[in-house]
Structures are given as C-alpha cells and as structure tokens.
C-alpha cells in the first residue's frame, strides 16, 4: 500500500477521527500515515450500521402492529441480536427469544427489564416498553 492510496481526510462516518495505516513510502520503508477511511472499510462499516438500522426499523413497525415486542426494536437499535443480547443480559437464548414476543414481554418484572436495560446501556428501563424513535 502506498501513501497516496490512503485518504488522509476523515470520512464523515468517522466524525473527524483518523486511524493509523501502514504504508510503504517511496524509499521502500514502512511508515504510519493517518487513514481517514478507505473505500472498502467505509463501505462495509456503513453497510453494517445500515443493517442494524434496517432491522430496528422493521422491528419497530412490527412492534407497532403488535406482532413483536418493543424489546426487539431496542435490541437492534443498540446493535445487538438475540444471541449477543442473551450473552450480555445473562439470559438463556430461548428466554430472550420468548421475551421478543409481545405477551411474555408484557409480563416482565421491573428487575428483568432493568437487566435488559443495563445490557443495552439504556438508563431508564421503562424506555424499553416504549418505541421512541
């Protein structure tokens, strides 16, 4: 990789941050240059972010229609999936999947909600019951 193959301008995605990239200078020696995000990495990061957003949007519509619990919406919004939410909250996976259904979710105790909220980094557990965009 040559220095001119790395954009030094930070991509909008990175909000002004630059990472370090190892490039070979004209003298044939390695050096570190600021990397504002190459096409490949910006593209795949955008896509990964967009996937979670899309899943959250779909879950929100289904939750509004009463077909799933708001937990699913918040889970994807916080970039988790059932498996990783189960690990982060310390529940078995089948329980998390069960809580993604509206009726079992409505019966969750305050303590259980708090556990989910903590795993997602949401300050107010009651927020999990709502569908704030």
């Amino acid at each position: 990789m040559r220095p001119d193959e790395v954009p030094s301008e930070s991509a909008p995605l990175l909000e002004g941050a630059t990472k370090a990239a190892y490039v070979v200078g004209p003298d044939g020696r390695y050096r570190i240059v600021p990397n504002g995000g190459t096409e490949a990495e910006v593209t795949v990061t955008e896509e990964a972010v967009a996937w979670f957003r899309q899943m959250a949007d779909e879950a929100r519509l289904r939750a509004l229609a009463g077909k799933t619990s708001p937990l699913e919406y918040h889970m994807y919004r916080r970039r988790l999936d059932p498996a990783s939410l189960a690990q982060a909250a310390g529940y078995w996976r089948w329980r998390v999947r069960r809580h993604l259904r509206p009726a079992p979710f409505a019966r969750l105790t305050a303590g259980q909600l708090a556990r989910y909220a903590a795993a997602m980094g949401i300050a107010d557990p009651e927020q999990l019951r709502r569908l704030d965009p």
Partner: peptide, 8 residues
C-alpha cells in the same frame, strides 16, 4: 468513539 464505530 465515533458512533458508527461503536459495536459490541
């Protein structure tokens, strides 16, 4: 972290 880099 920039919000787009924050994954679990």
């Amino acid at each position: 972290f920039p919000v787009n880099m924050r994954f679990h």
